[in-house]
Nucleic acid binder design. Sequence first.
DNA 1: GGGCAATTGTTGTCGTCAACAACAATCTTC
DNA 2: GAAGATTGTTGTTGACGACAACAATTGCCC
Lengths: 164, 164
Amino acid sequence: MTASAARTSRRKRTGNGAARRIDADEIGLDALVGHAGYAVRRFQIWIFQDFIKTLGDVDIKPTQYSVLTVIGANPGLSQMAVAKRLGIERARLVHLLDSLEQRKLVKRIKSKEDRRSHALHLTGQGETALAKFKRLAAEHERHVEEKIGKANRERLLQILAGFT
Amino acid sequence: MTASAARTSRRKRTGNGAARRIDADEIGLDALVGHAGYAVRRFQIWIFQDFIKTLGDVDIKPTQYSVLTVIGANPGLSQMAVAKRLGIERARLVHLLDSLEQRKLVKRIKSKEDRRSHALHLTGQGETALAKFKRLAAEHERHVEEKIGKANRERLLQILAGFT
DNA sequence: GGGCAATTGTTGTCGTCAACAACAATCTTC
DNA sequence: GAAGATTGTTGTTGACGACAACAATTGCCC
């Protein structure tokens, strides 16, 4: 049916149609190639793994990094505002902030304007730590460049700019 | 510090530095813009949601679709081969196939060459169903085109071709 | 050719994460 | 002031990846 059915293999046993011993890279994906979602999913897995590995020493994962970055750039934000901006549920953000607060990177300050909400700030430690995280994140970004090419990375960011 | 700190708001109360009432779209992302991983993650969320919605009537999710497509294009594959090719763990694939087999889309046939393994095939129902799924998936792909542009989608697939 | 390592499918556990629902405290609105 | 909305919190559920253990079977090695 497809081209892959005619390929050879380490232990070929063609003819009866049953199980041949084949390698993963000779399996045809057929319609799957040409699906943006599939390519994006695989790429996203790769990129997250590299991020986690590159920031492994400081134990910061992508979501934590995004939270710290947004708070650093917008001190005093409420949890609701951060959650909405990053597309995180506020229930999830609670635990994320619990962890970051325990590590003394972030502090929740009771707002006086709205006593329901917390104004989020980086601690002193948090600021210097974030600076280091950003350096490591830049290193990770260089890995992306090495993987797909500098120009392609630029183009990718341009294409997906509407989703930030 | 950042430009966003000087912006206005619905209920501005600048000066004391505490909580202002601000909208999500006026929060600066600072360093987050320019991170490929963040853009890709947001895009992937959007694209999966659209896929799930578009294939909602037939209740097929992206992973199920990828499994059916690979089996359809390579009949007789073992579970191990499918798992390796799609980057799914074989433990996870067990449940996926249980579900697809219950829905009479896929059948596991005991292989005679290697009695440990199962040769995976689509059923008759599975073939006609997959044809329908592919039509819906093509519709989803058109949504992607409308979102980012036809040329950009092509370029995206080209850039990420190495991850399929 | 007999024994040992590797592979395949399966089951189970653990930790992460998104999606909800419910709740108390507080704010907004009328 | 009362009713409804919002904020942070807690808890539950289900999907998912990573791992480990296991039986059945195969491949390999001496």
